[in-house]
Amino acid sequence: MRQRGPGPAPAPAPADQGRAASVRVIAEELRGVRGPLLPVLHEVVATLGFVHEDDVPVIAEVLNLSRADVHGVVTFYHDFRRTPPADHRVSLCRGEACQARGAEQTYAVAADRWSASPDVEVAEVFCLGNCALGPAGTIDGILHGRLSPERLAGLTDGWPR
């Protein structure tokens, strides 16, 4: 998922010892499954919010991969974000089916509304599988259908601007 917002987020602070230990535990627990790298990265994002640059050598060591291998995978997939998440996240579908129902307008309004906000991320996604009830999107991870600028405003009432 690509982000619209106030430009690239500042690089996260160096990871602390505790984080490295958590990442090691995750990697060691999943080391035994076939093709463990994606499951490990998913678990790191789920528990620690994002993949820190300093996580890469830890994972590489546990899984007996090169750092380049791990870095290559982290950067290939949209899900493996490398910066801490904002407080709120709006992901709006821009696939054809949602576009046919006016998704572009909703997306433009959202991107514009939160373009300067450090607290809200607006991301585009391509298909959430809710193509007959579009425009679709997720708001803080919850799937919604039949979105419009008005409905989005109602669902995000009280959020920082």
Binding site: R34, G35, L37, D69, G72, V73, D79, F80, V125
Partner: peptide, 20 residues
Amino acid sequence: AGAYICGEETSMLESLEGRR
């Protein structure tokens, strides 16, 4: 992990193996 191309069968196999 959010990559459309992984619907292509060989790309999916690469992904299952833990690669790009």
